[in-house]
């Protein structure tokens, strides 16, 4: 045990994900030895994230104003909405530069075993957005695992009567992988979703 402030810092750092007692101690001593200005920068960044960052009123992405950068952008296509689980997924899709529509962040996936049902996600908000009538296509981009698939199935069933085009991201073989290591479900999906090569 160290003296008050140092031990306090170690305890607080140790509560972060992936940081064990030894790592917490190492970070604490690094901060103790660091320049005061560096530590202040870190403190300011931590405070700013709690004070300034909130969730976008439209899509649920993280934002610094009422609406996020993507919802404010007038060049975006209003007719397509891509539904994702987490704000991290928005960043991942943005990196591809393939998608120019809007997003909707659900805030997780349906996971009955964790007690998370459709009512715990931003499904109602999605339905409200769709009822405005501008959207013609909904892309379901939840994770390609069981919970993500179940969420996509649930949403697809809900959206069907609205007469929209509902699409799901393709599943298949990862680029740069080996066919022989692909599992049966993934390889099966790749076969289902095969496409003609047009030259």
């Amino acid at each position: 045990m160290y003296e008050g402030a140092v031990q306090n810092l170690i305890d607080e750092l140790g509560r972060l994900p992936g940081v064990g007692p030894k790592s917490a101690q190492r970070i604490a001593f690094h901060l103790l030895a660091a320049e005061t200005a560096d530590v202040h920068r870190l403190v300011n960044a931590l405070v700013a994230v709690k004070e300034r960052v909130r969730f976008c009123a439209v899509c649920g992405n993280i934002a610094e104003e009422t609406q996020c950068r993507i919802c404010r952008d007038p060049r975006r296509d209003d007719t397509v909405i891509c539904v994702v689980e987490e704000p991290k997924d928005v960043v991942a899709i943005e990196r591809t530069r393939e998608f120019r529509g809007r997003y909707h962040v659900l805030g997780g996936a349906i996971s009955p075993i964790e007690g998370v049902g459709p009512d715990d996600l931003r499904v109602k908000e999605l339905m409200a957005r769709l009822s405005e009538g501008r959207v013609t296509e909904v892309i379901l981009a939840t994770d390609p695992n069981l919970e993500g698939e179940a969420t996509a199935t649930y949403l697809a069933r809900l959206l069907k009567p609205m007469g929209l085009k509902v699409t799901r991201l393709a599943s298949g073989l990862p680029v740069g992988g080996d066919l022989e290591y692909a599992d049966e479900v993934t390889l099966g999906r790749a076969f289902e979703g095969r496409r003609a090569l047009d030259f």
């Binding site: 069981l146 992988g177 290591y181 599992d183 049966e184 993934t186």
Partner: peptide
């Protein structure tokens, strides 16, 4: 990881 050799084999069910 998307390139895991386990893939969907370790999914529930």
């Amino acid at each position: 990881r998307t390139r895991s050799r386990f893939g969907a084999r370790l999914e529930p069910f």
